[in-house]
């Protein structure tokens, strides 16, 4: 495990923000750390980076205890926490050169990073004049500067346009696949994480609700049959009269719990015989978005 914590707890004043968190982040994974705003994600990340001192619990990163190996561990982590921290009066390149100086990284690496996040053309512009997306990209360049083994990114796609989000996603996938990095990425957007994560941890009110691989998460979600019909309300009534449980009806589709292929065929026949025009019928995994809501609300 690249990151493993036990009983990690933290209290701000009287409010317990992180409750006995046990993170398990395997090497070479993209670990999506999910939770609504205010769930305790940023606090947990600050604990991992030793910016906050936990009230209780242990943090091991690269199998080393952070309390006794702080410098060694931090030298292998690149991080981006909340908004990227940039010196507004320095240019993009100067921001990187300053960090390169501190991390003793050759200046050529700065040019490589500018190129990687496509900021070479704006390298001599003051960071204060950057757009939000450019700031975010510069923040990622800063995190990657020392070629860290572990990247900890707190909502890195905040403020990026769809193109920017895709670029970051592809970049992270590439870093894991080709360079053997591990990425720990937090987000409140499930759809975003779903597209790249190999592992997921879901947190709400400081407590872990689910942790496992993306496949595990999908396995606990029950599949559904999604039916597109001309008149969904009539179709739903017809099915209900035939003792079939309809879970959702919208203007253009309805869903029922999936049992078997045979059941799907029977429903299709039933609807056709009942005079309903069916546009499409198919098995569907429960949307991760819904699953996420289910998990966070049931807790």
């Amino acid at each position: 495990m690249v990151i493993s914590t036990e009983g990690l707890s933290f209290t701000f004043g009287k409010q317990q923000v992180v409750k006995s968190l046990a993170l398990q982040v395997p090497e070479g994974s993209i670990y999506g750390f999910l939770g609504p705003n205010g769930a305790g994600k940023t606090t947990a990340i600050k604990l991992l980076l030793n910016l906050l001192k936990p009230d209780a619990g242990n943090i091991n990163i690269f199998e080393l205890d952070i309390k006794t190996n702080r410098i060694n561990i931090l030298s292998k982590i690149g991080s981006l926490i909340e908004q990227p921290a940039l010196y507004q009066h320095l240019t993009g390149r100067e921001n990187l050169l300053n960090r390169a100086l501190l991390l003793q990284v050759p200046a050529q690496r700065v040019e490589d990073m500018l190129d990687l996040v496509q900021l070479t053309h704006a390298a001599n512009k003051k960071a204060g004049q950057y757009s939000l997306g450019m700031k975010q990209r510069l923040g990622i360049a800063l995190a990657l500067l020392a070629d860290p083994k572990l990247l900890i990114l707190d909502e890195p796609t905040n403020g990026l346009d769809p193109n920017g989000i895709i670029e970051i996603r592809e970049l992270l996938k590439k870093l894991v696949a080709q360079h053997g990095k591990t990425v720990f990425i937090s987000s409140h957007l499930l759809a975003e994480i779903e597209r790249m994560a190999t592992h997921v941890g879901i947190i709400n009110n400081g407590a872990m609700l689910f942790q496992g691989s993306i496949a595990d998460l999908q396995a606990i979600s029950k599949p559904l049959v999604r039916i597109e019909a001309e008149n969904t309300v009539d179709a739903a009534n017809l099915l209900t009269r035939n003792h079939i449980n309809v879970t959702e009806v919208t203007d253009d589709h309805l869903t029922i719990p999936y049992i078997s292929k045979q059941q799907m065929g029977d429903i299709n026949t039933l609807l056709n015989k009942g005079g309903q025009t069916v546009y499409s019928i198919g098995k569907q995994q429960k949307d991760l978005e819904k699953l996420f809501l289910d998990i966070t609300q049931s807790a």
């Binding site: 910016l51 926490i81 010196y87």
Partner: peptide, 18 residues
């Protein structure tokens, strides 16, 4: 204030520097 304004205390204190 250089650090306050840029919100960079967090990056200064997670550098691999004591």
């Amino acid at each position: 204030s250089i650090e306050h304004r840029a919100d960079t205390w967090k990056t200064l204190f997670n550098l691999p520097i004591p």
